[in-house]
Design a protein around this nucleic acid. Structure first.
Length: 509
DNA sequence: TCTCCTTTGAAGGAC
DNA sequence: GTCCTTCAAAGGAGA
């Protein structure tokens, strides 16, 4: 995966000027080859068990965190007390775009290592070395403006916008080459007190971008918030405040105060984070291009992840939410309701099975289209294996799904999420996730299942799916069952022994 | 141009 | 506590 990820990254880099991505040799020189070969390119510091505060008050790594780091990344040289790359370190962490993680970890905010733009990091005066707006060119010795990726790849500048600020997760998203959030081109007037950018913050932001960026017509509003969760109205095509200059040009009168609110996106959940990271890889491996199909694959892969792997993303998501809540104390997910075009929903999952659905009963991943791989899973495969990973990885993790190995004729759980949980859940907590997905995509079941055995009745539509044998799957699509999975499978078998095949029927009207 | 599709997870409202 | 709904990302497909 590392090779693949590096390759992807290199591909991206190769398309950019050397200014942005110095030659590998130079990079190695800059980072001293310190982290040139991380075992895992992502989440180096987020995987630390003692996430609440993996670092000691003096900035050094706590023993437990150090141990974990060493275990997780054997090649990672984890200093004992001097700290990884201490903020006082002569080697700026941001010079390494490989493992930015470490670069931020040492000057971690007490809350989380993700917060690099809390006030304490924006104190007036000369910013610390790791936040220095300039990087000495190793060739000329002349200070140069760092590339966003060096600051934080997580918040690459959006087109025409300037206002990205280093995001602690930047390294995580770098491979995708896309910003997690964007800043309104014209900035905005934030509705939340916590969004106010103080002078030091503002100066830092402006100082961290090259002149042409700062002088962009869409330069960051003085009171703009350099957080990526705020989406550009230009992109989202949603009502949003504009800078004075924009107002001057716009014949459209300012809208209602409420409409001026910037669109603050929801923080990404664990799966979304995973998707962002893995999408490119799946796309590369598979000939499929449709996101819906890719997402199906990703969904399956997600379930095939080990508990530890998922835990990384849950933790990452947790940090992201934490950060988000700090930045936008008054924000509520409800605020975004109705911001996007109302999705046409069928409250009754089957009111119109073949109704407007454009792709009803269409398998995104037909069995004969193996995308030379995996995923190619049969649509029905999507119902398979199950791993209690998620359920155990996080308190909020959903219950496990079932395994086709244990259940030759597996049931699509989409329409009856709750029921699904009741039948297959291996954990006590049955989150609403499954049902939520079913509700949000009321017709999703038809895409993933092979309707069979309708018994000639139109009144009910047994949602049955016939899983594909593992042998028909591409190896890369399925992870070999880990001991954890095996244990889960075992439990699952037990479950099924006590509850044979429960047909989930979908009443139609 | 806009919406749908598809995935999981989080959050909030209703009951 | 349970259930339901919406949104977060992504980009091809279809209207």
């Amino acid at each position: 995966e590392n090779v693949s990820a590096d390759r992807d990254l290199d591909d991206v880099k190769s398309s950019l000027p050397d200014f942005f991505f110095p030659p590998a040799a130079l990079r190695r020189q800059q980072d001293g080859g310190f982290f040139k070969s991380p075992h895992y390119p992502g989440y180096p510091f987020l995987m630390i068990p003692d996430l609440s505060n993996p670092y000691l008050s003096n900035g050094s790594l706590s023993p437990s965190a150090r141990t974990y780091l060493q275990m997780k990344w054997p090649l990672l040289d984890v200093p004992g007390s001097a700290g990884l790359k201490d903020s006082r370190s002569p080697t700026p962490g941001h010079l390494s775009n490989k493992v930015p993680v470490v670069q931020h970890a040492h000057h971690v905010h007490p809350l989380t290592p993700l917060i690099t733009y809390s006030n304490e990091h924006f104190s007036p005066g000369t910013p610390p070395s790791h936040l220095s707006p300039e990087i000495l060119d190793s060739k000329t010795g002349i200070p140069r403006t760092p590339h966003p990726s060096e600051l934080s790849p997580y918040y690459p500048l959006s087109p025409g916008a300037v206002g990205s600020i280093a995001h602690p997760l930047g390294w995580f998203m770098q491979q995708q080459g896309q910003p997690m959030y964007s800043i309104p081109p014209g900035g905005f007037r934030h509705p939340y007190p916590a969004l106010a950018m103080n002078a030091s913050m503002s100066s830092l932001v402006s100082s961290r971008f090259s002149p042409h960026m700062v002088t962009s017509p869409h330069s960051l509003h003085q009171t703009g918030i350099p957080h990526p969760a705020i989406v550009s109205p230009a992109i989202k095509q949603e009502p949003c405040d504009m800078s004075p200059s924009m107002h001057a040009k716009s014949p459209v009168p300012p809208k209602k105060e409420e409409d001026k609110r910037p669109h603050i996106k929801k923080p990404l959940n664990a799966f979304m984070l995973y998707m962002k990271e893995m999408r490119a890889k799946v796309v590369a491996e598979c000939t499929l291009k449709e996101s819906a199909a890719i997402n199906q694959i990703l969904g399956r892969r997600w379930h095939s992840l080990s508990r530890e792997e998922q835990a990384k993303y849950y933790e990452l998501a947790r940090k992201e939410r934490q950060l988000h809540s700090q930045l936008y104390p008054g924000w509520s997910a409800r605020d975004n309701y109705g911001k996007r075009k109302k999705r046409k929903r069928d409250n009754k999952p089957d009111s119109k099975p073949e109704g407007k659905g454009k792709k009803q009963c269409v398998q995104y991943l037909p069995s004969d289209k193996m995308c030379d791989s995996p995923a190619s899973s049969h649509g029905s495969m999507l119902d398979s294996p199950a791993t209690p990973s998620a359920a155990l990885a996080s308190p909020a993790a959903p219950a496990a799904t079932h395994s086709e190995q244990a259940q030759p004729l597996s049931l699509t759980t989409k329409p009856e999420g709750r029921m699904h949980h009741h039948h297959f859940s291996l954990s006590g907590k049955a989150s609403g996730s499954t049902s939520s997905s079913s509700s949000s995509s009321s017709s999703s079941h038809t895409h993933l299942s092979i309707p069979i055995g309708t018994s000639g009745s139109q009144s009910t539509t047994p949602i049955l799916t016939r899983p594909i044998p593992f042998t028909s799957l591409h190896p890369s699509m399925l992870s070999p069952p880990s001991p954890f999975h095996q244990a889960a499978l075992h439990s699952h078998h037990a479950l099924f022994q006590s509850q044979p095949l429960s047909l989930v029927t979908k009443p139609t009207e």
